[in-house]
Amino acid sequence: MSISLFYFVAFLTIFFALLVIFSKNPVHSVLYLIVTFFTFTLHYIMLNAQFLAIVNFIVYMGAIMVLFLFVLMLLNLNEGSVGSKSNLLKMVGVIAGMCLVITLVGSVKALNASDPLVLQTQDLGLVKNLGKVLFSKFLLPFEISSILLLSAMVGAVLLAKKDIKQG
């Protein structure tokens, strides 16, 4: 039951991810990306990681994708406005993509990820346990990432301020 459900959701994820790439209209792309993120949420729920699921839902679907959509709507890119790329650019793209695929496949192989994953503790994804782990075992990475976010925020504010001065 849960295996077949996983395959179904995984199929949906890949299907919509492909649609993101192949749809001509950028706004459609973003909408498919939102659906893709929603299937991620479903994956998290199936892993019993409720907190991650809902945070993925709020942050990616509810906030970041709204901003993506916002920018695209303001730019109002249409199907014709994205000009065709030169052949050289296409070649570079294919090579880069292939390199990424090889790296990913290699890393998956190296990790023996095809072995079934067994969770040591079933309730790891619940808010309380996740919070305890984050603030004890992984305190340093957690704090470092928060400093990263803070610096990004300061940078964004700085960029916005500069614009005002020039204008």
Binding site: Q50, F51, I54, I58
Partner: peptide, 14 residues
Amino acid sequence: INVGMLYIFGVVSL
């Protein structure tokens, strides 16, 4: 669900 408050927040943001 044990993240009910966040669920509502998510639905609102959607």
